[in-house]
Design a binder for these strands. Sequence first.
DNA 1: CCTTTAAGTTGCCTTTAGAAACGTTTTTTA
DNA 2: TAAAAAACGTTTCTAAAGGCAACTTAAAGG
Lengths: 172, 172
Amino acid sequence: MHSGNETMSCSVARAVDAIGDRWTVLILREAFWGVRRFESFQANLGIARNVLSDRLRRLAAHGILERVSLTPGGKRAEYHLTRKGADLFRVLVVLMQWGDRWTHDGEPPVRLIARTNGEPIAEMAVRDSDGRALGLMEMRPEPGPGANDATRRRLAAVPGGAGSRYQSDRST
Amino acid sequence: MHSGNETMSCSVARAVDAIGDRWTVLILREAFWGVRRFESFQANLGIARNVLSDRLRRLAAHGILERVSLTPGGKRAEYHLTRKGADLFRVLVVLMQWGDRWTHDGEPPVRLIARTNGEPIAEMAVRDSDGRALGLMEMRPEPGPGANDATRRRLAAVPGGAGSRYQSDRST
DNA sequence: CCTTTAAGTTGCCTTTAGAAACGTTTTTTA
DNA sequence: TAAAAAACGTTTCTAAAGGCAACTTAAAGG
């Protein structure tokens, strides 16, 4: 669609292609809350019906939702998360935690409680294989098994590694 | 901008408002790779210049990037990640891991290597406060300290908790 | 059977994205 | 130090996407 260069071999770009859209993420949020029907998505989000129609179709095409007909003829349907879609849960949680921290000043409107111990879930963090939490500067990108030439060239041009130095506060 | 109902009190919606846009996420990816200049973003992404201009302005307005003038007069600038922006690293990583798993069949084009032990980083997971990984069904949403009435009402309507049941495979 | 609800589709208008050209201000380099 | 090139946008124009309301068709409910 857009892109141009090697963009699409990047997993971030692929993910964005699937869900990088204002409405799509909110549709998924609703799906995780158990919403499955066209009218419910529409009513809860206030999204235009043609746009919703398009997004649901697109999500189904990506295998993130599955359209399940409730009638032989095909009309009347539910949209269910597939396993691929359910795995996007991690993305929603991390977005929510970022929003809680930076746009709600740590006072979340919604908390996720673990059934295992009744406590709020932990903040998600990037960790090494031994479980140590990693800061931005403590990792570097390198070509993986699926790398192509463009990716290899691109990575060679990266200076100090992931996020090589950043700056400033400005706080909230 | 859009929305309509209580949408915007949700942290996911706030996060989406800040970065929920095809280009914005890719701009941030570049920023994490150390890109800071207008021309570099433009050349690497192939994004239209007016759109890039708009997105950088928007990100700066959200306090995710900071525009740092290199000359007294103001022209010629760099865009640096703030701490708020750097914290979005978690989002990018989880998007990348999702893309690796579901659109690259587990063969990532890029791997992130921890400097702590030289190994690829772990898969990010949602965990309880004791560090146990949680599945979708093992948590439930409840109103937090920042909840308003609309949120409370909304949560009361959620059936079995987060993601109450999903379905089907369809695999990749 | 008649009414209501669900799930879209269609048509129209507004907003946003994309491509190319233009104008300045810095930085090179000859 | 003068001329050329590069950097950083803004402007203009066209194409595509989003939003809104009305309309259609198919089930469900009574």
